[in-house]
Design a protein around this nucleic acid. Structure first.
Lengths: 196, 196
DNA sequence: GCCGTAATTGACCGGGCGGTCAAGGAATTC
DNA sequence: GAATTCCTTGACCGCCCGGTCAATTACGGC
């Protein structure tokens, strides 16, 4: 198993390079149409290298998805750290998520694909629930302070996720670029939706 | 080429059966993991039958997607035929689209997959633009009557599409079933968004 | 009942896929 | 400089996939 390998710095770099290249290829070309040979050729290494770092092609995609979740949550955490007021933290988190989506359209396309096969969909369901729970906790704090109306925090968080998701689709699948005004509209929709 | 074939009634039934079975299999199991052999075995016919009715596996999926668009538009057209008031027609169309989404979660999953490969994404982009244009025309009529605020009709139509799409995702990808109240919220969001 | 065409069969094919592995080269450690 | 561990190579494997086709059968019109 490639899991418990003790990697050197050089090893970690190779691994990251494979991860990064695979992400863009999968996003541009599709997961199945992109072969493991395509990936190792693109990075300029032998095929064995791939299986030194990863157990299988499937495991690679699962790892890409899990890494992306970690990256998103890290970004969110950093963005809300400055503020102390729950409502401000909520807005900062929303804006950070939108920025992250704009910068990671590759991932968004991979996520869309992932929902089409059960093994990946499992990973995505879990990830989605985690992100929603994060948001729901912020909402609860705001409710405790009377800043927003009472209601199911998970449902509210789901709605916020839906708005951000749709903006992400616009970034990833839209024809041209996205009107910045749209971001403001989305943020407003999220925050207004919480008040009533 | 299977395109110009003169089909008997029996032929059309077979074709429809293949189309229907492939749709559910693709949705459940994924497009690539489902082989042509899986499909013909499932329907209980020889492999040659498949290539009598379709040029290729890819063409089959493209046809499924195009048929789905046609079906959606037919449903919408039927739903708005009753009303004459543009705003009422708009609402009827939205509700019909939502109902259609709830009844066609298989298609929604296939659409998600389709965006991940360029050849299918082309078909989807075109379909999306058509649906948005349909809606934009309705909006224009409502604007002319002063029923809703001025603004880019295409942008407004895109927003409506986004709301409906997100509800569709909920139907197709959600864990449990969808709170009917969510439908009302979605409809309200669409119509309110048009007023200001 | 005959004939033309629609429909069906399933063995077969070439190729590309994910994945393996024996062998060998680089670092690192002592 | 020997030993150990990390890393790399690329030919190779078996499988199964999408797609073909010559032969055969069912159907409809007359």
């Amino acid at each position: 198993m490639a899991e418990k390998r003790q990697l050197t710095r050089r090893g970690r770099q190779r691994r990251d390079k494979l991860l990064a290249y695979a992400t863009t290829r999968f996003a541009e070309n599709g997961y199945h149409p992109t072969s493991v040979s395509d990936i190792v050729d693109g990075v300029g290494v032998g095929k064995g290298v791939f299986y030194w770092y990863f157990d299988s092609k499937d495991q690679l995609l699962e790892e890409i998805l899990r890494d992306a979740l970690r990256d998103l949550r890290t970004t969110q955490a950093a963005a809300i750290a400055d503020a102390t007021d729950p409502l401000q933290r909520l807005e900062a988190g929303i804006r950070a998520s939108i920025r992250w989506s704009a910068a990671n359209t590759d991932i968004i396309r991979l996520v869309n694909f992932g929902w089409s096969e059960e093994s990946f969909a499992d990973v995505l369901r879990r990830g989605r629930d985690i992100v929603v729970t994060d948001t729901a906790h912020l909402i609860e704090q705001a409710v405790d302070l009377g800043q927003i109306m009472e209601g199911d925090p998970v449902m509210m968080a789901s709605a916020i996720r839906a708005v951000i998701d749709q903006l992400g689709q616009e970034y990833a699948l839209g024809n041209g670029d996205v009107d910045p005004e749209m971001v403001e509209t989305a943020v407003r929709m999220c925050l207004r939706g919480l008040r009533g």
